[in-house]
Structure formats: C-alpha cells, structure tokens
C-alpha cells in the first residue's frame, strides 16, 4: 500500500529533508548582568555561524560552549514543554527553544534579554519566586467536599473540554512578564496565576471556585487586567490567556461558572 503523499513531496517536506549546509553569520546582542563582576547591566554582541533552521537556544549554547562559558541561562527539555527558557527575544517574550533563527530576521542583530518584571539574578536568569508565589496563592489544586468515589469521578467530554486550554500552561512566565500591569506593580497576581485559577474554577469536579474567585476579587486580582492581549501573544502554548482572564471576571460578576 502506498500513500499518495509519498509519491509527490511537498516543497515544505523537501525543505525539511534538505541536508545541504545553509550556514549564515548572525549577531546576538545579549543583555549581560553579573553582580559578582559589576552592578551595571550591559549589552554584549556575539557573532556566530549557524544554520537558520536552528533554535535560539542552540545559538545560546554555541555561544556558551564555544565563546563565553559565563553566559548564563536556564534550559532543560529544549522543545517547549518544561518552561525553563522564557526570554525576551527581539523585544518579545518567547521560549528560546521554540524560536527558530530564520523566523526572527537574522539579517539584523538579534537581541536577547531576561524577561521583565522579575529581578534579574544573572544574565538571562530571573528570580522566579514571586511568580510561583502568585501561583500558589490561587490554590492551584482540586478542591472537593464529601466522600471520595471508589472509582474515578465522572466528567463529560464537554465538561472536560471546558477548561482544556488552560491545562496547557507550563508556568514559563512568558505571559506574566509581558504584562504592563505586572511590570508596574509586582503585587498583581499576573496572567499565569489567573490561568491556573481558571483551570480549576471551570473544572466541573472542583468545588473551590468561590474561594478562588474571592482571592482574585482582591485589589491585586483580575480587575487589574487592562486586556492588552500581550499575554495571549506571548504564550508559547497558544493559550487564549486574555480570554481566560475575561471568563474569570465574568464569573465574578455572575457567580456562574
């Protein structure tokens, strides 16, 4: 049995399978900061030969491994699921491991800096503690009353679908650190915490919705959101973050969820 798709390759598949080297020279302009060396942050340029189909993370590794071992950043899985390497690339929050160099115009210097609104500890590493504290504050776990069933709780496919989008969150902080309200006021819970509250408020099995809504009704809660959609643009998982925040706001008004 042969598949029709195999007889004639698409241009995209041919391009993907092309093994000819297409190295280019790119400049990475990286915001450096190390208080062991200087209290001042500064920009540093690195030039390297790289295949534009590679990731920004690959470029950072090449710089660290071949040019400057002191360049410091977090990373782990390298394919967009662990959430370690959110950073500001050409002024936009992205995961370095999900951003291909060809997609961010390598003809010009590519700027890379730490995400905003969280204290920079060294180079691209920020203090994640306030971010995780906001997450913990919304009680991000299933709350139920009464006796546990012996088997699984039942949930219809539709009820499961209701909160599917917000279960995708990887806690990378790309959304929260793209939010102008969060930049100006670190007390604001920020989009990621609200997304994770949403994930439980709209879960038909959960009975803690009222408690969470009260927390988010706080002066630093959902009402601070100015719907600039930065968070939705920044989310590497494609979550409709602003929409989720709006749904939480609506639930607060109608008390229906």
């Amino acid at each position: 049995m042969s598949s029709p798709t195999l007889e004639k390759h698409s241009a995209a598949l041919d391009a993907a399978e092309n093994t000819a080297s297409q190295m280019i020279t790119a400049t990475f302009r990286i915001r450096r900061f190390n208080p062991e060396v200087s209290e001042e942050a500064s920009w540093q340029d690195f030039q390297l030969e790289i295949d534009p189909k590679e990731r920004v993370l690959d470029a950072l590794h090449k710089i660290k491994w071949d040019q400057d071992g002191t360049l410091t950043f977090r990373r782990s899985c390298a394919h967009g699921i662990c959430g370690s390497d959110a950073m500001r690339i050409n002024g936009k929050n992205r995961l370095a491991c999900k951003t291909l160099i060809k997609d961010i115009n390598p003809q010009k210097p590519i700027t890379v800096e730490a995400i905003k609104g969280l204290t920079v500890l060294k180079d691209l590493v920020v203090d994640m503690e306030p971010f995780f504290q906001a997450y913990r504050d919304v009680m991000p776990f299933l709350i139920t009353n009464g006796n546990e069933p012996t088997r699984e709780r039942r949930q219809t496919a539709e009820d499961r679908e209701r909160f599917d989008d917000t279960t995708k969150c990887i806690l990378c902080a790309a959304c929260t650190s793209s939010c102008p309200v969060f930049w100006n006021d670190g007390q604001y819970f920020g989009p990621a915490a609200i997304v994770n509250a949403h994930r439980f408020i709209f879960d038909s099995r959960d009975e803690g919705g009222e408690q969470r809504l009260e927390i988010l009704n706080d002066k630093d809660g959902v009402w601070r959101c100015r719907t600039t959609f930065n968070c939705t643009d920044a989310c590497p998982r494609g979550i409709e973050v602003t929409k989720a925040i709006q749904e939480v706001k609506r639930a607060l008004i109608t008390r229906r969820f």
Binding site: F141, L142, R151, T156, A157, R160, D203
Partner: peptide, 20 residues
C-alpha cells in the same frame, strides 16, 4: 494509581460515559 491521580485532579480525556 490512575484513580488516585484522577482524584488529585488530573484532567484525563473522557469516554462518552464520562469515565477515563
């Protein structure tokens, strides 16, 4: 083990009956 995770809140995909 699977039932424990479901009770902890894991959002498994569901059958038309609402089971895992």
């Amino acid at each position: 083990s699977v039932l424990d995770l479901e009770k902890m809140g894991l959002p498994f995909n569901r059958t038309p009956d609402g089971t895992i």
